[in-house]
Write a protein that binds this DNA or RNA. Structure first.
Lengths: 151, 151
DNA sequence: ATTTGCGTTGCATACTTATTCACCATTATT
DNA sequence: AATAATGGTGAATAAGTATGCAACGCAAAT
């Protein structure tokens, strides 16, 4: 529940200006997430967001995973956790939006997991385009990624 | 007087962590600058400092930026005007060709305008791939971009 | 000299954010 | 099973920040 909320917070903050924790609370409520300002204060601290003239802002470059241990290449799930913002489907494609600079590592991780539905990926700076064989498979992939995003 | 104070603020913030405006006030007082928290609030806004988990932070990472005005990001229209060459549609995608090196800024500007038909964009050096939800919407987007291009 | 306009500031206060405390649920530990 | 430790939460409130307002100083215009 909490991780899902944290993910939603990053999403909201990345996609629209958020001037206060109370505004964030209202925006989350529209997504069915209902918490108090106190909790958001704690979440924001945990996500290491900072507040400037334009509202809340994601940490620079956004290295959320500062883990000391390195168990080989990071998993797709970890990558999504760190960089993923949202996912949308279009026809036989799936578009994953990420934090700026996050697209390449996310795409690389997705390539590594080797889902059979995925024909290939292309990554820009903050967008990964995932090509699937057909629309149905793209839907499956979108669902799976969304589940990971919200976990 | 004021500019001197702003300079001192940048200096203090750059050289030691500052957790609150009142702490900043005390540190400035040691330098012979005596102002109230209210004024510091205004100064901080003007300097565009932001406050994160570690206290106040300069805008540019190093912040020799002072209080220069920024016109905000250029519009999509301006970007197209500057870099756009031609636009073509393919299925649910729209391909915008640009001058070499123009794809990234054009894509960034297109992302910022936030057209709902656009699921995502990916940019190379001179080509922007715009993903739309379906073929029809791609047609709409192509028309709109073409209109801008030809205006 | 007086007026006018603008910029800066402090005070008081409204607004926003962080923290303390109590409570509850879940997960070890004995 | 009972107890303790851990972690998440809301309510209340403390701590911190922004702002309306009035006052002041200065410089240009009258």
């Amino acid at each position: 529940m909490k991780t899902q909320r944290l993910s939603a917070i990053r999403d909201v903050v990345a996609s629209s200006p958020v001037a206060s924790q109370d505004e964030l609370r209202r925006k989350l409520r529209r997504r069915g997430i209902h918490v108090t300002q106190a909790t958001l204060s704690r979440d924001i601290h945990e996500l290491r967001l900072s507040k400037g003239p334009g509202g809340y802002v994601l940490p620079n470059g956004n290295g959320i995973h500062a883990s000391a241990e390195d168990d080989g290449p990071p998993s797709f799930e970890e990558m999504l956790e760190s960089f993923g913002l949202r996912v949308r489907q279009a026809m036989n494609q799936v578009v994953v939006s990420t934090v700026l600079g996050g697209a390449q590592p996310v795409a690389a991780a997705l390539d590594r997991v080797g889902w059979p539905e995925v024909v290939g990926t292309i990554a820009g700076d903050d967008t990964v385009l995932v090509i699937c064989a057909d629309q149905r498979k793209a839907g499956d992939v979108e669902d799976r990624i969304r589940t990971l995003l919200e976990s």
